[in-house]
Computed example of a mutant assay.
Amino acid sequence: MAPLFLTAALHEKIWGGTGLKDDYGFEIPSDHTGEAWVISGHPNGPTTVQNGLYAGKTLAQLWTQQPQLFANGDPKRSFPLLVKILDAKQDLSVQVHPDDAYAAQHAGELGKTESWYVLAAKPGAKIYYGHQASSQAEFDRALDQGDWEHLLQTVPVKAGDFFYVPAGTLHALGAGVIVLETQQSSDVTYRVYDFDRIDAQGHQRDLHLADAKAVTQVPFKPVKTNPQVEEGLGFVKTTLQVAPYFNVFLWQIDGQAHFQAQAPYTLVTVIEGSGKLIVDEQSYSLTKGMSMVLPSPIKEWTLAGQLTLVASTPGPKAL
């Protein structure tokens, strides 16, 4: 069984730039490209298999038509995870995502818990993460009055930082930040503040304040991450997050390292360097920006070279 190498779906955004091309080699559609959906079964941007028996099929098609590749016992569900690389040339809108219950009722989708691994950050870069309101009344008043100076909470960031962003967290990437985002497969966003930007048609983008008031966690309680590091000959493996919907790992390879599957399938993106993946004595070249799924029939594999990868597996709520 071969790994499933994937072609990303690219999305233009008002806040995007050229980092996806400059840093990761994607063929972007314009100089304001904000997102590469590198592993996706979502209808708004499904990725396509490049190689092997399933070349030309989308990940969504394989999930339903070949459920054995994922040990998927319920093909009627949608593929539960989504991995993106985001290039924030400008600040993203300050936004919040709903949980499963609210999203199902109001949007017919999954909720959206996500996480960010910071790939690059310009000096002085920051993210918006949480808020300072102590009560629902204070939060609602700040939204109604546009009191962003007193409401929004910012955190300085650098490459290598990791943030867990559960549904209900007010958040945004700041200008000059590139991240790898691991999330539930959902495209439901409630925009709270867009810095009074005007789009190409001369209009401000819609805000969703009523929904934001209904789903935002008040008061904000950040989830602390506790990375666990395992070092061995040729590798450093860091568990960045173990969570209900997904688990996220950083693999740093310098030489050769052997892995065994810990879940029904594994999602992998190369974020730095080059090397090779060896499965069943077959070797596959790896370069920065490549993404793949290691499906259920692949029980073990070897990584060799000098490269860094972010991997993820489904959590219990995604199985």
Rank of each mutant, 00 (worst) to 15 (best):
P156C: 09
P156L: 09
V157H: 01
V157L: 08
V157Q: 06
V157D: 04
K158Q: 15
K158L: 10
K158W: 08
K158D: 08
A159M: 09
G160H: 11
G160Y: 07
D161F: 11
D161S: 03
F163W: 08
F163C: 12
Y164H: 11
Y164L: 05
V165G: 08
V165A: 10
V165R: 10
V165W: 11
A167K: 12
A167C: 11
A167N: 07
A167H: 11
G168D: 00
G168V: 04
G168M: 06
G168F: 06
T169E: 13
T169I: 07
T169Y: 08
T169C: 05
L170T: 00
L170S: 02
L170G: 00
H171D: 06
A172M: 00
A172H: 03
A172E: 01
L173T: 02
L173W: 06
G174C: 03
G174S: 00
G174P: 05
G174T: 06
G174R: 04
A175Q: 10
A175C: 10
A175F: 14
A175R: 03
G176D: 04
G176E: 04
G176V: 02
G176H: 05
G176Y: 03
V177T: 05
V177I: 09
V177W: 14
V179I: 15
L180H: 11
L180E: 08
E181D: 10
E181C: 08
T182A: 15
T182M: 13
Q183D: 11
Q183S: 06
Q184F: 03
S185T: 00
S185L: 01
S185G: 01
S186H: 09
S186E: 05
S186F: 10
D187K: 06
D187H: 08
V188A: 04
V188T: 14
V188N: 11
V188D: 07
T189K: 03
T189D: 06
T189Q: 01
T189V: 08
T189R: 02
Y190Q: 02
Y190H: 01
Y190W: 08
R191W: 15
V192M: 06
V192T: 02
D194L: 01
D194T: 06
D194S: 09
D194H: 06
D194K: 04
F195Y: 09
F195T: 00
D196I: 03
D196Q: 10
R197N: 07
R197Q: 07
R197V: 09
R197T: 04
R197M: 07
I198R: 12
D199K: 03
A200F: 15
A200L: 13
A200M: 14
A200C: 13
Q201R: 13
G202F: 13
G202I: 11
G202R: 05
G202K: 02
G202E: 04
H203R: 15
H203D: 08
H203W: 13
H203A: 05
Q204V: 11
R205G: 00
R205W: 13
D206H: 02
D206M: 01
D206E: 09
D206S: 07
L207M: 11
L207H: 14
H208F: 12
L209W: 12
L209R: 09
L209N: 01
L209T: 01
L209F: 12
A210Y: 15
A210K: 15
A210N: 15
D211K: 11
A212E: 00
K213A: 09
K213G: 05
K213Y: 13
K213V: 10
K213L: 14
V215H: 04
T216D: 03
T216A: 14
Q217L: 15
Q217D: 14
Q217T: 15
Q217V: 14
Q217K: 14
Q217S: 15
